[in-house]
Computed example of a mutant assay.
Amino acid sequence: MSDLGAGFGYLMKGQRWVARHGRWFGFGLLPGLVTLVVYAGALVGLGYGADDLVGWATPFADDWSSPWQGLLRTGLTALVFVFGLFLAVITFTAMTLLVGQPFYESLSEEVDRDEGGEVPESGLSFWRDVWISARDSVRILLRVALYGIILFACGFIPVIGQTVVPAIGFCVSGYFLAEELTAVALQRRGMVLKDRLVLLRGRRMLVLGFGVPLTLAFLVPFVAVFLMPGAVAGATLLARDLVDPAPAPDPEPATGTVGSGAAPAGPGQAG
C-alpha cells in the first residue's frame, strides 16, 4: 500500500515542479488547450446524439410498455455516454501527447536536466519519434478498447455493474494513462513499448497511485489541461526512479564496543 502513496507523491512533485518553473507550465498548456476544444465538441455531440443512437440500436423495444422501454433506453444512453467519457479520458492524453510531442519532450528533458545526472536523448529524428509515439498510442488504445468492451458488457450485471466495474474501469484508465505519460521519458531512454509495460507491471501499485488520481481529476472539465504539464513532469520523475532507483544506504560499519570481548589489535599484537 505504501507504493500507492508514493505514486501519488510523484504526481504532486510534478505539479510542484511546474509551479516553480512558470515558463514551462505555460509552455505545456498549449497542446492541451487545442485538444480540449476538439474533445469538448465531440462529447457535446455524443451527449445530444446518444439517445438517438440507442433508439436506433434497440428497435426491439419500440413496442415495450412504460416504464420498461424508458428504463432500458435511459440506462443504455447513460452507459454509452460513460463509455465515451472513458475513452475520452484515455485518448485525451494520447492525442495531447501526439499534438504536443515537441513541447513535452522539451519539458521532460528540462526536468531531467534540473534533477541532475544524464539527460537521455533518443537519437532519432523528430518525425521518427512522432511515428513511434503514434504507433505505440494506437497499440495502447486497442488494449484500452478491449478492456472497455469487456467492462461495458459487465456493466449490465446487477449491483456489480454499478459498483465494482466502474472501480476497475478507473484502475484500467489510470494504469494506461500513466503508461502514456511515462512514455515521454522512457522512449528517450530507448525503451520500446514491450519493455515499458514490463517495467510498469513490476510496480503496478506505484503506477496506479500515480495514474488513478490523475484519471479522476481529468474527469473535471478543464482540469486535464492545467494538470497536464505537471503530469508530464511527475511522470518523468517517476520514470527516472523506475529505471535507476535510488541506492539503499550502506549499513554502518561495525565498531568495537566496551565489553564485547573483541578489540582491534594494536601494533605488535597480531598473532
Rank of each mutant, 00 (worst) to 15 (best):
A248R: 14
L4G: 08
Y175Q: 07
F83A: 15
S133Q: 09
V138A: 10
L238R: 01
E121C: 14
A6K: 06
Q101V: 10
I132W: 02
A153M: 13
G234Q: 07
L46R: 03
V54E: 13
I90S: 13
R139T: 03
L146Q: 00
E180G: 10
I132R: 03
T215E: 12
I140L: 08
G211D: 07
Q269P: 02
I168L: 15
F8Y: 01
F60H: 12
P221I: 11
W17P: 01
A270V: 13
F210A: 01
L107C: 09
D136K: 00
D195E: 14
F176H: 01
S2T: 04
G155E: 07
M1F: 11
V258R: 08
G49E: 10
S65E: 12
D52C: 08
L216S: 02
I160P: 12
A19G: 11
L142Q: 02
D63N: 10
M1A: 13
K13L: 15
G22D: 11
L181M: 07
G161W: 06
L141H: 05
L193I: 09
A145N: 04
C154Y: 05
D129N: 15
R135P: 12
G230S: 14
A246V: 14
R188I: 00
M1I: 07
L71W: 12
P31A: 09
